[in-house]
Design a protein around this nucleic acid. Structure first.
Lengths: 198, 198
DNA sequence: GACGAACTAGGACGATTGTCCTATTTTCAG
DNA sequence: CTGAAAATAGGACAATCGTCCTAGTTCGTC
């Protein structure tokens, strides 16, 4: 079936782009991985940028799906944020090898001056909006976006260094710190809501 | 003179690697920028990896020099750490366009499985050790390395997101937060040294 | 069962890649 | 001034890049 082959191509490209980068992954590499000819390849994707579009859309869909699942599973917004923070540990091995899929793609496309850079940034926006929504539900109001960006930035930095030093201990320690930070934020919020004590 | 041309090559390669990445920068690109022939080029650098080595060594030397200058200029270790944090603002424009030179190179080489990955990580180590030394002087003892890594990670994350969103406000806000964090760390330290109060 | 569309294979294309070679020019010590 | 070494230019090299084309094959629909 057509869609099946197309799906296999995007899936293979997704993995290769993550592991070796967009620029370093060739048309031939993907075709070889999928086990199809380059000619067949071109029937599904006219240009390399088309594949990139496909990969980004796939990641957008997958991410959205994951965030939706969290939205249902965890009843507590704080617990959902902790779910986000813990991706660093869940995907720890991959991150130590290849970095964060979102951050590294965004950085590469920025350097390549690639038109799809904003599409890659949309992946970040997905997380950002989701996190902001959780903070809003916790009652942080206008500060929610700032807090979302803060968490997002922290996890990006942790991914970068865990990758550079291949350091699992650091990664886990920073995850703890981020959870501690979250607890403090929530505690400060409840204090400021009841300034005179109970 | 020989060394002069060599220096110009490394300088141009340094900039191009930063702005467009190592993989995306070709031999011809560098030669064109410097204004020399590819043949002349090969006389100075046998392979592309040799240029990468040259660029990394140049960055190592420049970084070391910058850190040494800070070590002399600022008498207070805390002030020196603030100098480090403020690179984000000083180089803000470049960072928003191309990300952090250290982090993006490290990420790219990790994906390329390049032998020089550890050399690029040495750039991180330079900052890490310097920061650890400052924390040690402030009296943080065994915690110094953890704090150094924390600061390093935070700035990496800020650079990644400032680049992805081209957001100067976020960058400046996070720099403030990092400085606040530093103040809290120092305050906590002095409190724990005088647990019963003055 | 026939026929058009979708799918697949494999090769050709010009351009560019990193690398290497051979001339020519420049530099500088004896 | 001379001759060896260093520096430079420019092209050749095979390999690979993204792209495109032309054949076959398979499929679904009348």
């Amino acid at each position: 079936m057509a869609t099946e082959t197309r799906e296999r191509i995007v899936e293979a490209a997704d993995l290769l782009f993550y592991q070796h980068g967009f620029e370093a992954t060739s048309f031939a590499d993907i075709a070889r991985t999928v086990g199809i000819s380059r000619g067949n390849f071109y029937h599904h994707f006219k240009t390399k940028d088309d594949i990139l579009d496909g990969v980004i859309n796939r990641r957008l869909a997958n991410t959205e799906q994951m965030l939706d699942r969290w939205e249902i599973a965890g009843s507590d917004p704080a617990e959902r944020i902790r779910s986000f923070i813990h991706i660093l540990i869940v995907n720890g091995e991959k991150i130590r090898k290849f970095g964060c899929p979102v951050g590294t793609l965004s950085s590469e496309l920025a350097k390549l001056n690639h038109a799809a850079k904003s599409d890659a940034a949309a992946l970040f926006t997905l997380f950002r909006s989701w996190l902001r929504r959780q903070f809003e539900r916790l009652g942080f109001g206008d500060k929610s976006d700032e807090l979302a960006m803060h968490i997002l930035g922290r996890s990006q930095g942790v991914a970068t260094l865990a990758n550079a030093f291949d350091d699992d201990r650091f990664l886990r320690h920073e995850v703890e710190l981020m959870c501690d930070w979250l607890d403090v934020q929530i505690a400060d919020l409840t204090n400021s809501n009841h300034p005179t004590g109970e």
